[in-house]
Design a protein around this nucleic acid. Structure first.
Length: 372
RNA sequence: GGAGAGGUGGCAGAGCCCGGUUGAAUGCACCUGACUCGAAAUCAGGCAUACUCGUAAGGGUAUCGGGGGUUCGAAUCCCUCCCUCUCCGCCA
């Protein structure tokens, strides 16, 4: 979320950045300016009253200690208190409206990010490797996997439903080997520390990384049947993580890191759970868009002035994995319209899929700046 | 699930029973100054965060796990939630 003072101080910039994202500044910002002024006006008013109340209360205390009568003064404070209660209510209402606006403003894309509408406007930055020229018609992975007996989507559907996978034998081993391979390279060669976080987090963590409040629909929400209200959530509800980014980034939430310890580089393996609401009919075949998938995540905490260089290094670290596996890929710089809500700049790595004859996203590396 | 004990500033630790000069004693850590050739020790002073008013100096408000309540006034009393610890029970 952006800082209130920053949004107030940079109205032109905010509007420009919203337009770059294809958003309507008027619609997104609404009554921001008026609410912000009202809020500060109310605060001043409220605090003056509170100041009076505190002063008078103190005098009541002094009188009582001196064993003198204080009833007149107490009556006076009581009337101030009533006005405070009223003002407090309207101040709270203004506050929550302002907060609602702030939480819906996305991070601002860096200037070097191309302004564009969707993935068609993404810019190819580099390409590595050459897609092999095959003398035969390559099979899609779901056919190959089924034939080899390593991928079983039918039984997954039976025990869990659509968009799940069962990996058998070498398929399960391959998954495990890839996880170890990535963790080992990142921890031994790239200087990351391995962490194993919980796979469930509370609501506050999801606000911290920007999944809530806008993207509640994309998450699996664990609630007690008792007291459940659809669409509602409480601070202590549990949610299945949609990516390790959520628990790992929130590790240091509300903490101040010692500058000398930066950059903090963390690598985490977790399963990831996504409801994929709204994606029905998309990528229905195979294991491309699953409710549960396994991922190794890299997270860095850096000084602001180092974040670009560290973002580049992290992206290189991810590319190294593909290179060691001899998988041809290309790096895309996402345009403003395709960049995620919390990100200021995102590189997607797209790997060559012979069965489909195209590059598809395999990895996404974002600089979130101070937004999370 | 049951019983009990706790959660206070960067850390440690008072205050809570008996509400009011307590934004919070004291110690440690940290910063500045004095002393010293320098350091240690000692002495003096400083040392939270957010919001807000103000050009500034400076002021105000809030914050003692979170939220709510009682009261003229809450770290202190009441309710509720969260977390930690101890003991008992239950379960994979």
């Amino acid at each position: 979320m952006h800082d209130l003072g920053f949004v107030r101080a940079n109205p032109e910039l905010v509007e420009k950045k919203l337009r770059d994202r294809g958003m309507d500044p008027a619609e997104t910002l609404g009554d921001f300016r008026r609410l912000d002024e009202q809020r500060r006006e109310k605060i001043t008013q409220l605090e003056t009253l509170k100041s009076q109340r505190n002063e008078l209360s103190e005098r009541v205390g002094a009188l009582k200690r001196a064993k003198e009568d204080a009833t007149a003064l107490m009556e006076q404070v009581r009337s101030i208190k009533e006005r405070i209660d009223e003002d407090q209510q309207s101040a709270d209402a203004i506050d929550s409206q302002l907060r609602a606006i702030l939480t819906r403003i996305p991070n601002f894309c860096r200037d070097e990010v191309a302004v564009g509408r969707d993935e068609k406007d993404n810019v190819e930055v580099k390409r590595w490797g050459t897609p092999p020229e095959l003398t035969f018609q390559p099979k899609p992975h779901w056919e190959l996997g089924a034939q080899l007996g390593i991928l079983d989507l039918e039984r997954a559907a039976k025990i869990s439903g659509a968009r799940f996978a069962v990996y058998w034998g070498d398929g399960a081993k391959l998954e495990r080997a890839l996880i170890s391979f990535m963790l080992d390279i990142h921890t031994r060669e790239h200087g990351y520390t391995e962490v194993l976080p919980p796979f469930m987090v509370n609501s506050k963590s999801l606000f911290g990384t920007g999944q809530l409040p806008k993207f509640a629909e994309d998450l699996f929400h664990c609630v007690d049947a008792e007291g459940f209200e659809p669409g509602q959530y409480r601070d202590n509800d549990h949610w299945l993580i949609p990516t390790a980014e959520v628990p790992v980034t929130n590790l240091y939430r509300d903490e101040t890191l010692d500058e000398a310890s930066l950059p903090v580089c963390l690598a985490a393996y977790t399963p990831c759970f996504r409801s994929e609401a709204g994606s029905y009919g998309k990528d229905v075949r195979g294991i491309i868009r699953q409710h549960q998938f396994q991922k190794v995540e890299l997270v860095k905490f850096t000084r602001p002035e180092d974040s670009d260089a560290e973002h580049e290094k992290l992206t290189r670290n991810a590319e190294t994995i593909l290179e060691r596996l001899s998988l041809p890929y290309r790096r895309m710089l996402l345009c403003t319209g395709d960049t995620g809500f919390s990100s200021a700049k995102t590189f997607d790595l797209e790997v060559w899929l012979p069965g489909q004859g195209l590059y598809r996203e395999i990895s996404s590396c974002s600089n979130f700046e101070a937004f999370q």
